[in-house]
Design a protein around this nucleic acid. Structure first.
Lengths: 259, 259
DNA sequence: GACAACCAGTCATATAGACCTCTTGTGCCG
DNA sequence: CGGCACAAGAGGTCTATATGACTGGTTGTC
């Protein structure tokens, strides 16, 4: 097996004094080979032993790098045979929570917003339950039409516990990225989210805002986002134009949950 | 920290001669404590060192067990502080490919089917491309109305490369579980799938089959499933009643991809 | 030619020990 | 009393080593 692990290009060896972990450097190198086509779908990734020998690391470190490819879904292992590159490519951005702005930027579109409302209010029952609040506790309510490449894409209604982000009304320019402000100014990092999608049709008011015809197909998303400690930080209801978006999912089949 | 790792119930120690890996036994034990409420959301999981000392395993093994909880999404680690139980519970069945039958059984509904078509045909362009076939190569086509708890839930059109499952027309009773037959009789195991969901409205013919009104909201799913080696095994188009289903997603936010 | 035994290569699991960074609490000193 | 230093405890990374189990091919026998 003559997989080149850098032969000829071996000026790019590992940086053992970097703060970047060795296994991560190796992972990136393997991903690069897959991206570039040097490793094609179905071909075996270099074995743990080969990586360990070639790069002068322990087998456990090589193993950690290879295993991470499996976790990412770009490869799969077969005991006794080897580790092979998965069929379809796709490497990031699945299974991740991304804010609207981040998602648009990731795919090269320009995000913009039209702010419809930005105020403190009392939550309704559904919001209070999702955010684990008493109805007396106030929330920040933000309603925006989100625009991608100059055309409306969705209407988004965000609810945040006011207690967790005091003075947000002054600190946040509401056409920008909310996640960025929450992270940078309040130290609130979204860790995980539950999201429910429903198929529906647009109401008259929605259709007007989205510039589509009434009763056109739309997605309705309901998302609750949580901090590391499990505390709800955000409850969002959004309505996406059905003609401008799809929900893409990558599913794996692991009936036994390993590692 | 007085987390009981089995104190009093320590008759249930680890089985070191079992074929079940130690880390998996530990993982299951921790999951059980979370399920039972002995470990609540936000509380720290026993530290790696504590597990290692209590159960007499190495720290690496304890670590593997704890880490697996993070991969499952039921816990999260903070360097220098500890590993903590995540807020919302949910433990399986996300991120997994499930067949219709499996999914219905998992939630306690009774799956049934009404077969509309089951035959060999030539693929159209879209199907041929998805399954990596030439238009000359035949496929098995199966169209069913899938029924859950006595009411129609979706219309499903499945396309399989005929080459991979010869004599399926004779071997498969088409109201049963296709994945089961593919696995048991042909050794074909679905490993991964890409799925796209779109929001739409029902056509007249669909509405009739699903027993809903015309132009009611529906989901349209397009799924391509792959074997371990990346070979496409199945292409499915399905139309789900919007009033009877939701798409639930659990997303995590890991901007740095670890392990 | 069929079948069993063996072997080499591979991943899976497990152990022990080392060193690092990060967080938190404690206690001393100014 | 405030602030700094330090130690303890936690997870993160890495090395070295060993054993087990599965796969595929080879070899040898019948």
């Amino acid at each position: 097996m003559s997989i080149q692990l850098g032969c000829g290009v071996d000026t790019a060896t590992l940086d053992r004094h970097s703060v970047v972990p060795l296994y991560y450097q190796i992972q990136q190198r393997l991903l690069e080979q897959i991206r570039s086509g040097a490793l094609k779908a179905g071909e075996p990734v270099p074995s743990e032993q080969e990586i360990a020998a070639r790069l002068g690391v322990s087998r456990m470190t090589a193993r950690q790098a290879v295993k991470s490819l499996c976790h990412l879904g770009v490869a799969y292992s077969q005991r006794g045979k080897g580790t092979f590159v998965s069929g379809a490519k796709l490497e990031k951005n699945f299974r991740q929570v991304l804010s609207f702005s981040e998602e648009m930027e990731a795919r090269g579109a320009q995000p913009r917003s039209r702010v419809l409302a930005f105020k403190r209010i009392h939550p309704n029952e559904q919001v209070a339950e999702a955010l684990h609040l008493s109805p007396a506790e106030e929330i920040i309510f933000l309603r925006r039409v989100r625009i991608a490449d100059s055309a409306p894409l969705c209407i988004e209604a965000t609810h945040l516990p006011a207690r967790l982000c005091p003075k947000l009304l002054e600190n946040f320019e509401p056409s920008g990225s909310l996640y960025r402000v929450l992270g940078e100014r309040y130290g609130l990092q979204v860790h995980m989210a539950d999201e429910v999608a429903e198929a529906s049709v647009a109401t008259g008011a929605e259709a007007k805002l989205l510039r589509i015809r009434g009763r056109s197909p739309v997605f309705r998303f309901t998302r609750t986002a949580y901090l590391h400690n499990g505390q709800p930080i955000e409850f969002v209801k959004s309505t996406y134009r059905g003609d401008r978006c799809k929900v893409v999912n990558r599913l794996t089949r692991q009936l036994e949950i390993i590692s």
